[in-house]
Amino acid sequence: MPPPRKRASFFRAPKQDGPVLITEAAPSLEQQHRSRVRRYMLLMGFRIPCLVLAAGAYGLWHNALISLVIIGVSIPLPWIAVLVANDRPPRRKDEPSRWDGRRAEHKAIESGRNRSIDG
């Protein structure tokens, strides 16, 4: 005869490995910073292999054009890495838009007839 099974409790949730997220709050600033640093390091990590690959291509084929193309690809990597790392977390679909279209209808400075003084 098999051993008796424990009855699953009706009100108890199954055990989970980590804490349960019960809020819609944004990730903490430390988590956001950590992920931005990780993205920056990943993109900048591609630059060193590009430079090594350029040196290897020149040593293998003695063609400076191939090496310059590889180096040319690595030149914008720091700029791209900074832009990606400084980007905000992606906007959620339920996050409200902050732009109000009604304000765009009104001009900041009214155009009208201005009197001028002729001297």
Rank of each mutant, 00 (worst) to 15 (best):
K15H: 05
P76D: 06
E30S: 13
V52Q: 06
I80L: 15
L68K: 10
V73N: 04
K6N: 10
L29I: 01
W61P: 03
R103A: 09
S28N: 11
D87Q: 15
A81W: 01
A13K: 15
A108N: 08
K107Y: 06
R5Y: 06
R103K: 11
L51I: 08
S28R: 10
D118V: 07
I22Y: 03
I66W: 13
G112W: 02
G59H: 04
G101Q: 10
P3E: 11
P27I: 03
R91G: 07
M44G: 12
E24N: 14
P90S: 12
A13D: 11
V52K: 04
R5N: 07
P27V: 05
A104R: 11
P90H: 08
Q32E: 12
I109C: 01
R92E: 07
G101H: 08
L42V: 10
W61N: 09
I80W: 07
A64E: 13
E110H: 04
A57G: 10
G45Q: 01
D87T: 14
P19I: 02
H33I: 00
R102L: 06
L60Y: 14
V37D: 09
L77E: 01
I80F: 08
M1G: 11
P2Y: 04
E24I: 03
V82T: 11
D17V: 02
K107R: 14
R92Q: 08
V52S: 09
F11V: 11
Q31S: 09
I48G: 12
D87A: 15
L51F: 12
I48L: 15
G18I: 00
F11A: 15
I22C: 05
I71F: 05
P76A: 01
H33K: 14
D100V: 05
P78T: 05
R36K: 14
P96Q: 10
R7C: 03
R98N: 11
E30G: 15
R102T: 12
R88H: 11
E95L: 00
R113V: 10
V20A: 06
P90W: 02
L83R: 15
F46P: 00
G119Q: 03
G45I: 00
G112N: 10
G112D: 13
A13S: 13
M41Q: 13
G56P: 01
A13M: 01
D118Q: 12
I71E: 07
I70W: 06
K93G: 14
Y40T: 02
R113N: 12
A81H: 03
W61G: 00
G45R: 00
E95T: 10
C50V: 01
R12H: 11
R47L: 05
G18S: 05
E24Q: 10
V69N: 04
P49R: 06
G112I: 02
L21T: 09
Y58K: 07
A25P: 04
V82R: 14
P14W: 01
D87L: 08
P90D: 09
M44H: 11
D94P: 02
R36P: 03
A81Y: 03
R91D: 07
